[in-house]
Amino acid sequence: MQIIQPHYHAIARTAQDYERMAMSGVVAVAEPAFWAGFDRLYPETFIDYFRQISEFEPTRAAQYGIRHFCWVAVNPKEAENPVLTREVLKHFPEFFAKPTVLGVGETGLHKSTKNECESLEAHVDIAMKHGQLVLIHTPHLADKAHGTRRVLEVLAGMKVDPERIWIDHVEEQTIKPCLDAGYWVGFTLYPITKCSPKRAVDMLEKYGTDRMLVNSSADWGPSDPFTLQECILEFRRRGHSLQEAIEVFHNNPCRFLGQNPKFDIAPIRIETDVVKAARG
């Protein structure tokens, strides 16, 4: 089965991960800009990071037949430095012009401070002005419900197209208001701290598969890119068809990311023997 990893921090992972993903059917990954584990001090550090994910990383993925796309953003954890944020934002348009950059992300909230909310608003604003997609991080654990509400409040005060915005890391207590407002949502499958493969399938069964994206966890912390395959196995084990799995784990990423024409992987449809026979 062909799989797309829509949220994958490739620079934190090994070539062996690419190799194993390729062997398990992954055909493309999309890499949002991430926190480095410490707060960066210089705009140039971000510029080089964006060059790494937009120029170098696609060449590494290509060695395994995997397409690599990316996003640019100042991470919410670094939004407490508004001068730095403004300076980095000035460079976004030059990256929007690169062939594998899909939009702005992951922006969003961490502790939902005033600076973070202003940074989120500035990120969404520049994305909308340049016709870019947006990927929004919602906080972890105790801050999640409040932070997600704040994200929705910030977006409600702006002129945005919800179809072009993906609110990520939703869980049972936050998914409904995001879907009700018309946004795409993403589940992030971490070994412990976020959603689990089984809970993600529960939500797919409860809310349907429209505007749903499923990500593995893949960064420099405790995480596992193959939680996505675990989720596919759980989905199929519960009796959902191969085509239904393709819709969620391949075609939905194509539908959302494909709103940017640079993402040129098309949804696929399995032609069954029954259909072939009917055609003669």
Partner: peptide, 20 residues
Amino acid sequence: FLEARHQLLEVAALLDRHDA
């Protein structure tokens, strides 16, 4: 704590899944 939280959430999800 986080591991126990995760395990309890899985139990809660199992009970919700049964109800559904």
